[in-house]
């Protein structure tokens, strides 16, 4: 049985890549064993604590545990972190020893590429990971912030998309992938990351006429939801 949480039928074809959206909130390319994860926002808790909100200081550990589970399940050869890996530039220095060690063990399991994000424009160079602003593989550019006027297909993060539907007197709001034929935006992976509704006007320049598809994440499954079922916040 495939370790993927997604029937093989759901494939996002982009450039020369066939990416599979996984219910853990990551993209996976099985031929090259390429794993994409975005917006870990490590040390967001301690970042907010500096401003007086003493939230449980376990978000980094929680996020890394989830990522560890994904890595053990999918065994990637290459892992691209699409930026905002840390919530702020001092994030790496605030991580505690245990979290540093866990993170190091995950980096040993695959070749890591750290894309710079707006929260962490200068990720540390000494982690044994390649640090880049963007990278192009199979005619697809991987970058943090999606470009309105892009030259080629792209896979990006940054916007933390979530989708919401209403039915049977209830509403369900979940992180989601957002895509059209030449762009995929990943959901944020971090444990303390919130989200922006895909119907928000911030997405309009990227998907004119709201022509996009969403894949909503719920516990261990992934659901393709058309835009006519979606509602705003």
């Amino acid at each position: 049985m495939s370790p993927l949480t997604n029937s093989q039928s759901t494939v996002l074809s982009i450039g020369r890549l066939s990416m599979i959206p996984d219910a853990a909130g990551v993209l996976f390319e099985p031929d090259e064993r390429l794993l994409i994860v975005s917006d870990l926002h490590l040390e967001k808790g301690s970042s907010l604590a500096r401003r007086g909100a003493l939230l449980p200081p376990y978000d980094t550990r929680d996020t890394l545990n989830k990522l560890s589970a994904v890595i053990h399940r999918l065994m990637p050869k290459t892992l691209i972190a699409l930026g905002d890996t840390w919530h702020d530039g001092n994030g790496p220095s605030r991580m505690n020893d245990d979290d540093h060690q866990l993170f190091a063990s995950l980096r040993r399991k695959a070749d890591w590429i750290l894309i710079a994000g707006n929260h962490d424009p200068n990720p540390p160079q000494d982690l044994g990971a390649m640090v880049l602003d963007e990278i192009t593989i199979g005619e697809v550019t991987f970058r943090h912030e999606p470009l309105i006027k892009k030259q080629s297909s792209e896979i990006a993060g940054h916007l933390h998309p979530v989708a919401k539907i209403r039915a049977r007197g209830r509403s369900i709001r979940r992180k989601c992938f957002m895509s059209d034929s030449d762009r995929v935006i990943l959901p944020a992976f971090g444990s303390y990351t919130g989200g922006l509704n895909v119907l928000d006007s911030a997405f309009n320049p990227l998907f004119p006429n709201r022509d996009f598809l969403t894949h909503m994440i719920s516990s261990n499954e992934i659901f393709a939801i058309g835009r006519h079922s979606l509602v705003g916040d």
Binding site: I165, A167, I172, M216, S218, F223, I225
Partner: peptide, 8 residues
């Protein structure tokens, strides 16, 4: 929630 999502 899964039932509702499956419906959608």
């Amino acid at each position: 929630a899964e039932d509702i999502l499956a419906d959608a």
